[in-house]
Design a protein around this nucleic acid. Structure first.
Length: 405
DNA sequence: CTTCCACAGGAACCAGCGGACC
DNA sequence: GGTCCGCTGGTTCCTGTGGAAG
């Protein structure tokens, strides 16, 4: 590319973006932004606050269990209330600490415990200590601190499904073994049927108080978006109908507020990039598609090599819109590995990896019987073919063989 | 009605790694 | 420096199964 061209391009982009007056404060639309108000969650805030308020009197609040789909405000409500609670506690000299652990990110008992220890002020190596030892340390050090500790376990279903409810059982009974400190647990889950995974004792102890977060309706999402848009956008930057449209799309996605906010933000970014001063519903439509494509590319990119090869096999076999089966995929996958001169995973393992691709929403599978031709999975590519290939070809090893297709 | 395919998916186990403890 | 520990990412072996073919 000639440098003059480059200058022109940069000039053009900078010009457009800088003259566009769309955002006042884009950050308030980011997923980790914690607003001071949560419209349509007054009831839940009241409930959580009333349970936790016991802490201010020095009592141990009841354990609390929150259910609700993604983007229904569970985490935000808990964060908001615990933040205010911590402030109040400080004012009143109550020794209170809130430990927030996302058990999807920190998904082993070891990591949960090390997060908890970190929260009460102790660093723990990433591996090496026996979990039982770690638990003993936690108990001992916590008791020394003379604290009221509120443990928030976000996305707790991930932990329990992978590692059972052992740790949870211990934590719910830890108070019996503490002399100076006290522990309350707040569990948060997206999975409404989650309690079937729990030992009944854990279940009853954990859900001393329960609270359900219903999905937001379209009008409620509209309120949330308006509230946030006021802070995020310049006046008049949104065309009539943009917010209801975002709300309607997100309401279709099971009332997910995070999705709604993402949509609005990306639509704004698109408008900004075009150098416009107005966000239109057309931008929202494009944003919707782009979010999905970006998600696919990103997910594909971060896949391990063998999963990529399996996905490539599936993409190739379903390119003409047909479905494929585990056996066919395995055959083609084997060709790929021998082309690359790397070892081939067993069918058993590949079967699990196919299951993971399904979980990621890249493909959809269904177990069927083909009679005498046996049981297998019907597989088809759920996501955009081009985006999948784009994500795959970013990996030079995959591009090497994908080029032949 | 029975057979029998081509896998699904559970269980047990293993190797290699990074890191603490003594 | 040897021992112990947990995690990841596999393998091996296994039993289970829906329904078209015979």
């Amino acid at each position: 590319m000639l440098s003059a061209d480059l200058d022109d391009i940069l000039e053009d982009v900078f010009e457009r973006v800088s003259k566009s007056r769309i955002f006042k404060n884009r950050d308030v639309l980011m997923p980790d932004f914690l607003p001071n108000r949560l419209p349509h969650r007054e009831e839940q805030i009241r409930k959580v606050a009333s349970v936790l308020a016991q802490a201010l009197k020095g009592y141990r609040p009841n354990n609390l269990f929150l259910y609700g789909l993604t983007g229904t405000g569970k985490t935000a409500v808990v964060k908001l209330v615990t933040k205010k609670l911590s402030e109040k506690a400080r004012e009143r000299g109550v020794r209170l600490k809130v430990a927030f652990v996302n058990t999807k990110r920190d998904d082993t008992p070891y990591r949960v415990l090390s997060k908890l220890l970190e929260n009460i002020g102790f660093r723990v190596p990433p591996t090496g200590i026996a979990t039982a030892q770690l638990y003993a340390n936690f108990k001992r050090l916590l008791d020394k601190r003379d604290l009221l500790l509120i443990i928030v376990l976000d996305e707790i279903d991930y932990h329990v499904k992978k590692h059972g409810d052992d740790l949870l059982y211990k934590l719910t009974r830890i108070n019996e073994e503490l002399r100076n400190s006290k522990v309350s647990i707040i569990g948060i889950t997206n999975d409404v049927n989650f309690t079937s995974w729990l030992d009944p004792r854990v279940k009853s102890s954990l859900s001393e108080e329960e609270l359900v977060f219903p999905p937001y309706t379209a009008p409620q999402l509209e309120d949330i978006l308006r509230d946030r848009a006021q802070m995020a956008f310049e006046d008049e930057a949104l065309e009539e109908g943009v917010i209801p449209f975002c709300a309607a799309l997100a309401a279709r996605e099971r009332g997910d507020a995070r999705k709604a906010l993402d949509l609005l933000r990306v639509a704004g970014e698109l408008a900004e990039r075009e150098g416009r001063n107005k966000v239109t519903t057309e931008h929202v439509k494009k944003a919707w598609e782009q979010i999905e494509k970006d998600r696919v590319i990103e997910v594909v990119r971060s896949l391990p090599l063998h999963s990529k090869l399996i996905l490539l096999a599936i993409a190739k076999l379903t390119k003409d819109g047909t479905v494929t089966y585990t056996g066919e995929v395995y055959k083609l996958y084997k060709e790929f590995t021998s082309d690359l001169g790397i070892e081939t995973l067993t069918l058993r393992r590949v079967s699990d990896l196919i299951g993971e691709l399904d979980m990621l929403g890249l493909i959809s599978t269904q177990v069927v019987s083909r009679g005498k031709r046996g049981m297998t999975r019907v597989i088809n590519l759920e996501s955009d073919y081009k985006s999948v290939i784009k994500g795959l070809k970013d990996d030079p090893r995959v591009a090497e063989i994908a080029g032949l297709i």
